[in-house]
Design a protein around this nucleic acid. Structure first.
Lengths: 163, 163
DNA sequence: ACGAAATATTTTATATATAAAATGTTTTTC
DNA sequence: GAAAAACATTTTATATATAAAATATTTCGT
């Protein structure tokens, strides 16, 4: 009369065993939502009148000095092409990003940071880092290192072969 | 001639010290984005023709048998009131959720799962758990436990006093 | 070199999200 | 008990996101 009952079929057993996968996922989602929605979004709007997707767009470009095609960019940002186009339109209009077709392949556009965009992003990234330090800086080095290692494992479990 | 240089002013020093807060944040965001955008969203759409916000709406109600006011709900979901209203309109229309004004306070609405909504959510939640087990189930118990503990610390760092 | 297929992006239609104003209700204050 | 303040939600206007169709260019096969 002790312990929980177990079903014998494969599918049911999976769920009844001590998997905490869904709790882990929900906690992961809670943590990133809290940071994004309760802290980062407000700061981005107040101090820079911008948004996280726009930051991400610029951050991707900052890592690629030669620029990125629209397709590469939307794939790295994990957003749709239409979304990437909309963000690019804004940022080109504001002079932060340059978008050019290379003469040898006029199907693609290559987007890159403008000089103005580079300066702007440097300031933005520095403040972003300060915000995160003030949020997470109290965690011990050991905890941060463990989290990075374990989240690395999570990441490698969930990355798709083709994505 | 060894090691990195340190500035002496407070603000610069913060950044130059060995904080990895921003890397931790970006990895956290990557993990939850990967799970949501590359796996969960597609499954929710294909198998249930629904979305994560709609799932979240129902999940919040499932935890509160007496129902929740719209304000409580939008606060727990971390979305705007207008967004909650829009989702409620859909789900009421589909008969999954009931929305009533209590006679003593007609400023508020109390929303709760309908019997149909309870059955529907039970199926949805069971599949959701299966998806997460197939994604994350290879992680060891030890790793999952460590992650839960460490993400618990992260969560307690970032929850706001009033939010 | 020509038509078909593949590729890259934008456009269109629609869903989801926010912020701020508007609406209606309850509570407080005097 | 009436006016003001506080509260809870919806509405409005707009931004952000997706999926799918449309457009345009390049590459492949013969």
């Amino acid at each position: 009369m002790s312990g929980k009952q177990h079903s014998t079929d494969q599918e049911t057993r999976l769920i009844e065993e001590d998997h905490h996968s869904i709790k882990l996922w929900l906690r992961l989602l809670t943590c990133s939502s809290l940071i994004e929605k309760k802290h980062l979004r407000g700061s981005l709007r107040e101090e820079f009148n911008t948004t996280l997707p726009r930051f991400d767009f610029l951050a991707q470009l900052e890592r690629s000095a030669d620029g990125l095609t629209m397709g590469e960019l939307s794939s790295r940002m994990m957003v749709s092409g239409g979304n990437a186009t909309g963000l690019a339109n804004q940022l080109v209009k504001e002079g932060l990003v340059e978008r050019n077709s290379p003469p040898n392949n006029r199907r693609t556009f290559v987007v890159k940071l403008s000089p103005k965009g580079k300066k702007y992003f440097a300031k933005l990234a520095a403040r972003h880092e300060e915000w995160m330090i003030s949020l997470l800086g109290k965690l011990s080095d050991t905890d941060v290192r463990s989290l990075m290692r374990l989240l690395g494992k999570v990441k490698s479990e969930v990355v798709q072969p083709s994505g």
